[in-house]
Amino acid sequence: MKTGSPVLISRADPFPKSLWPRVATVALVVYVIYACAQMEISWERVQTGLANAAHFFARLFPPNFARHELLVRGLLESLQIAVLASTLGILLALPIGLAGARNLMPPWASWPARALIVLARSLHPVIVAILFVKAVGFGALAGVLALTVASVGFIGKLFTEAIEEISSKQVEAVRATGAPFPSVLAFGVMPQVFSRFIGFATYQLDSNLRNSTMVGIVGAGGIGGTLFAAFQRFDYDFVCAILIAIISLIMLGEVLAAGVRAIFIDNATLPELFRRRGLPRRDRLVEDE
């Protein structure tokens, strides 16, 4: 019986699925059904909504730019809020972020700074805006302060991480010459983190611009208030005009931020900036929040 042993071709799956993904899938399906039931989401509701959608979109178009003065005023205020909040936020975040870096600062300085950064980051800017509206009244000031808090949280965190990742060689070399602490910062630390810092700063300006169009929903100035009022009055064609304006503003902001990054990180000159087709992708942060 030794002759001509047949070549066995196994028909079994060469990549057998383990138990764990199956259990996870079942658990996920159960969770989705449970959550939908809890929130009273059902297929009928989706269908009724979809029937509404055509009507809703019909009312959105054509966009109505008749009240463009209101629109421009709101957009300008959003822009002012974004610029001032980014400036204040960056100015405040630099010392706080530096204080949080554990490789340069003693624990008594880094822990309070890190706690402050976590606190500033944990609440959504719109919620912070509610508190500032109560504190300083309706208007752009509340928006500026709320977005300043958000900027301190975001830039502070990234700046702290950037400083903690630097090479200690240059710092030690500058220290060895007997340089005082400010010189160590200026010549040992800053050159190592400057390009990343430009990345955070442009990103934060971009993010503040997005949020400054939203804080108006809670009365903190900018175009958001106009948007929400128009929405509540069912002025959907004006809502559409505002949305188009906001999206154009945000896209313009993105282009400008990419230009600043090209100049400071890739050492581009002005003619190069206009010549190049796609702006560089490097050192761009993961977008969002």
């Binding site: 989401i41 009724t48 909504g49």
Partner: peptide
């Protein structure tokens, strides 16, 4: 909210 009305959906 405009399409489906207020709520978690």
């Amino acid at each position: 909210v405009g399409i489906f009305g207020p709520g978690a959906l």
